[in-house]
Design a binder for these strands. Structure first.
Length: 982
RNA sequence: GCCCGAGUGGUGGAAUGGCAGACACGACGGACUCAAAAUCCGUUGCUCGCAAGGGCGUGAGGGUUCAAAUCCCUCCUCGGGCACCA
């Protein structure tokens, strides 16, 4: 369009950009979004906000990755900003800030790619993000935006690690307690000591081992996820179901390695139970519940024949089927395998009562000549070499090998063979099972494969048996295991009988018997594993840990921070060799690693050895460490003496849930991606609970209300090789999509680098302005639903802002177009209906419908302006205030032009006058047999009889009802009249 | 395989037992213009009909109800989580 024909004061992208820069500058220089604390370092409070009720609105902070933001990222940031601005106008003191999760793989990988030190790239990337977020107009308190890589921040990350390290979990009190109190408990004799020697009489080494064994952070040799492609070990949560690293899709291998672990499993029950106190979606609670994977059952000890005192302990959820256990299985890496494996195969006399002799099948898959130790060794080698992926794809066929050993079923004394098989995992339960093939499908398949007896001890339902033409006691005819409910049978010995009991009663009875006899006890098992907490990467928080010749020693608080040394060779040692050894880059910083320190007592902490040489821990903490507590640091970001001032923490912790009960979480409203369901959201809850137990925070949970924003999807295109092509270069011709002259296939995918379908917000700011961009993202659909990006749709919301502007400002002169004439009743009624609806929608995060209501009002206003030449001042001001949270720059500009000096940030959001919400007349649809046949106009509030009379009085309805018998008339006043005819 | 969630015009979506399709995009028509853009006004679920008006319609089938996109059952498709978890 030729610029000279555009009215001078039209709301174009140029004007939008001018307005936006002006207000972004003013917000910054006037400290508009500085949120005061009631006390402490950030208590400067010129606007008197600190006395207001507090509201903490939080986004999951981003990894500043190099390529900058795409339009999918700000969705949540806009939503929280709209909500925060709305609640500021509802007289809340709102805390809203944005920091950077800058340690970890993404930042480091980008640094490696570009050959630049990660500190440099991280700083550049943060600057880019800050610029892009500022251009978005978000109202963050800039003083509170920490980066996890700031030394002043990670000093406290290290401090929290020490808090965890210097704690133990008191199962009786069901909370973590300081390690010094553990020593008191040892002295008081609460826990056993080696040979019952009093704690103080133990040697320093024994004291230390005893204490270290109960710490919440510990070093252990465990089967861990080793990812040579990344050169580091990973937590279970960072490995995909396919056995690949979540970052980079490299293969992951299970390897026994000595690593730092955090004892998150101590919190399994609380992490599970406290979900009930949180306002999170059911789906994300379910993901966490499944991940924690609580199972209740019993542990049972099976004595191994010929090995006095050796029991195999199993966990089962079905103790009611104990009498049906006909064999046992140990995981290939179970420590007892070597102990119990026989030297020779048993003689045939074992099988005299069997229909056939299955011993050859039991000797494994590598031939019949190996004696048991060799057969078992070869099978273990075979099984442990499998990747998770192979193990899963092989899951259909059960494999295993007999150990030559037998155990005794403690219920009935029968002798049952012990196998090694890879369908039993060392990492779950006790790593050993009792196998009940009649009532467990996996055991059933294994038993079929190895000709093992199948003994039904639960009577299947008649229907189940009939469907399978099977008998209740002869399981040889069954096509599958019976896993349903039923009545126990064949389950009695001289001491206890389950026969005739239903499954639930049988479980209870046998569990009591197990406890009474000391054979077993009720038990709970979790899928959740302890958190593997060390990484062999450079770009992370150093551990505040050194080693003496015995093991790890924690540094005292006053030696923090342990600053990450500057090294030039920061690249991780990566390879594709699964047997490569992890090599932490920090090990190359020899001068840093070797430290001479004087660590004052106590002895049980490994201290008190005088000045001597130590070696620093060269692993670093994982990505998630810094994100576990950043929301606490936002509260008091400049405090050099404490993680957070207690009084400040407490002022933000106040608040109640909608039902009046106190908040369980300190953050009132948290928005972020669902991909963190079992990563950040679980880890942060764990750390918070430790801090809560130790008295450092006053709420048991971090995040009260959580919303997972939906992904923004965008068309992505693949060529004939299936490779993604740059979406911005694809053209549509005659209904087909073409890239460089070749036709490509269109799909819809999550916006991002890998699908080459990113759209940069910078382009949208330039072409439409940030207000249009914000409005578009909020108008696309409900916050928690995924939605496709469509640049063409943006003009709709841009036109709205243009019309809004035109209704209030003369496009030719730039003068405000408001009148002081009274507002007509129709407009005022619409205005108050809009206020009521918008208020409601904003509070419930239905920003898309709130915007639709504003469209409607503005469209009406357009006709008012066409008629009267101006907008009534009352309507103009109210509309501007309602638009303000969504499109704050244009609202500020209009507010100023309407004669106000100060920002509208702290103005009061409009409230509807109930008097103007009452309709004088209502239109009520009239149905005959549920089909709408007419409409009647009624005075508001008239009774049922008046509805029916008016409906019968309608000529069209009267005509349709003549000669018809009406059997019933349903009237919902103001809503519907329905005539039911014979 | 198990467990969640979702399926509504050409498109994004609205309506959570009471008028299906608010609002927006697109499309079509009109006004303005030499013309185009921009802007403004109107039409727009499908279908039969000149019209008045009728029929159909919320993934499919069934059910509950005076009344169902909404509640219940079965199935299909898509998305997500878990997956030999004892």
């Amino acid at each position: 369009m030729p610029a000279d024909e555009t009215p001078k004061h039209r709301y174009t992208s140029a004007l939008a950009n001018e307005i936006e820069h002006k207000w972004q500058d003013r917000w910054e220089t006037e400290h508009v979004f500085w949120t005061p604390n009631r006390s402490g370092l950030l208590s400067e409070d010129p606007r008197g906000l600190a006395s207001r009720p507090h509201l903490y609105v939080l986004d999951m902070f981003p990894y500043p990755s190099g390529v900058g933001l795409h339009v999918g990222h700000p969705l949540g940031y806009i939503a929280t900003d709209v909500y925060a601005r709305f609640q500021r106008m509802n007289q809340f003191n709102v805390l809203h800030a944005m920091g950077y999760d800058a340690f970890g793989l993404p930042a480091e990988q980008y640094a490696v790619q570009t050959g630049t030190h990660p500190r440099v790239t991280t700083e550049e990337n943060i600057a880019t993000y800050k610029r892009q977020l500022r251009a978005l107009g978000v109202g963050h308190d800039p003083r509170r935006g920490i980066a996890t890589t700031d030394v002043s921040y990670y000093k406290w990350t290290q401090w929290i690690f020490l808090q965890i390290y210097n704690s133990w979990y008191d199962d009786e009190a069901d909370r973590a307690r300081p390690i010094a109190q553990l020593v008191q408990e040892f002295r008081a004799g609460r826990f056993p000591t080696p040979d019952d020697i009093p704690f103080d009489d133990l040697g320093p080494l024994e004291q230390r081992e005893l204490v270290d064994s109960r710490r919440l952070a510990y070093v252990a040799e465990a089967s861990v996820n080793w990812c040579p492609g990344l050169g580091t070990v990973l937590a279970n949560e960072e490995v995909t179901p396919e056995g690949l690293s979540e970052r980079g899709n490299f293969p992951v291998y299970r390897r026994p390695l000595k690593q730092w672990m955090l004892h998150i499993t101590a919190y399994a029950d609380r992490l599970l139970d406290d979900l009930d106190t949180l306002d999170w979606s059911d789906s994300i609670k379910l993901i966490q519940r499944n991940w924690i994977g609580r199972s209740t059952g019993a542990t049972v000890a099976f004595p191994v024949e010929g090995h006095a005192g050796v029991d195999i302990e199993v966990f089962t959820t079905r103790p009611d089927t104990l009498f049906g256990a006909t064999y046992m299985v140990l995981a290939p890496d179970h420590p007892l395998v070597e102990v119990i494996t026989a030297n020779e195969w048993p003689g045939d006399d074992i099988f005299v009562d069997w229909e056939s002799n299955p011993i050859d099948a039991w000797k494994g898959i590598f031939g019949l000549t190996d004696p048991p130790p060799e057969a078992v060794r070869r099978y273990r080698e075979f099984a442990l070499a499998k990747t998770d992926l192979e193990r899963q794809s092989d899951a259909q066929v059960k494999t295993g090998v007999f150990t030559g050993a037998f155990a005794t079923n403690p219920t009935n004394g029968s002798s049952i063979p012990i196998f090694v098989a890879d369908y039993v995992l060392m990492g779950y339960g006790t790593g050993a099972i009792m196998a009940v093939p009649a009532h467990d499908q996996r055991d059933f398949e294994f038993a079929r494969e190895f000709d093992l007896p199948i003994v039904p001890v639960i009577r299947p339902s008649a229907e189940w048996l009939a469907d399978r033409a099977a008998g209740p006691t002869d399981a040889t005819s069954w096509p599958e295991a019976y896993v349903g409910d039923g009545v126990a049978q064949g389950s009695s010995n001289g001491d206890v009988s389950l026969d005739g009991l239903h499954v639930d009663e049988a479980k209870q009875t046998i569990t009591e018997w197990l406890a009474r006899t000391g054979i077993g006890e009720a038990s709970v098992t979790y899928k959740l594993r302890d958190w593997l907490f060390s990484r062999q990467r450079y770009w992370g928080e150093p551990f505040p840990i050194v080693y003496d010749d015995v093991g790890p020693v924690a540094l005292p608080d006053d030696m923090l921070p342990v600053v990450l040394p500057e090294i030039t060779d920061f690249e991780p040692k990566t390879s594709d060799d699964p047997d490569a050894q992890p090599e932490p880059p920090l090990a190359r910083a020899i001068d840093w690693v070797e430290a001479e320190l004087d660590l004052p007592g106590p002895v049980w902490a490994g201290h008190g050895q005088g000045r001597r040489a130590y070696l620093r821990e060269t692993n670093t903490m994982p990505q998630w460490a810094g994100s576990c507590w950043y929301y606490l640091r936002y509260l008091d970001p400049t405090n050099e003496d404490e993680m957070v001032d207690r009084a400040v923490e407490q002022e933000w912790a106040e608040g109640t849930r909608p039902d009046g009960s106190p908040n369980a979480g300190i953050v009132d409203f948290y928005v972020g991606g669902v991909e963190h369901a079992v990563l950040h959201l679980l880890y942060a809850r764990f750390w918070h609970k430790v801090l809560y137990d130790l008295g450092h925070v006053s709420t048991p949970e971090p995040f009260q209300r959580l919303v997972n924003q939906g992904y923004i999807l965008a068309p992505a295109y693949t060529d004939e090789r299936g490779m993604y092509v740059e979406a911005g270069e694809v053209e549509q011709r005659d209904g087909v999509y073409v890239h460089n002259g070749r036709s490509v296939t269109r799909e819809l995918g999550k916006m991002g680098k890998s699908l080459k379908n990113s759209v940069s917000p910078d382009d949208i700011y330039r072409d439409y302005g940030a207000d249009t961009f914000r409005l578009y993202e909020m108008f696309m659909g409900p916050l928690d639903k995924e939605r496709p990006w469509n640049t063409a749709d943006i003009v709709g919301v841009h036109r709205f802002l243009q019309r809004l502007w035109r209704n209030l400002v003369d496009e030719e002169t730039g003068a405000v177009r408001v009148s002081d004439a009274p507002t007509d009743d129709e407009t005022r009624r619409r205005l108050h209906r809009t206020i009521a609806a918008v208020r409601n929608d904003m509070a419930s995060l239905s920003f898309n419908t709130a915007i639709a209501r504003l469209f409607e009002l503005n469209n009406h206003l357009t006709s008012v302006v066409a008629r009267d030449g101006a907008t009534p001042r009352e309507v103009a001001m109210t509309l501007v205030l309602m638009v303000a949270p969504l499109a704050p720059h244009i609202a500020e500009e209009l507010w100023e032009r309407l004669g106000h000096d100060d920002t509208l940030t702290y103005e009061t959001f409009p409230s509807a006058d109930p008097a103007w919400l009452v309709e004088e007349t209502v239109e009520v649809p009239v149905q005959i047999n549920g089909k709408v046949r007419g409409r009647i106009q009624l005075a508001a509030g008239v009774d049922v009889a008046a509805h029916e009379a008016a409906a019968r009085g309608d000529p069209r309805i009267a005509g349709l009802l003549s000669g018809v018998t009406v059997v019933e008339v349903k009237v919902v006043p103001g809503r519907i009249v329905n005539f039911v005819t014979a």
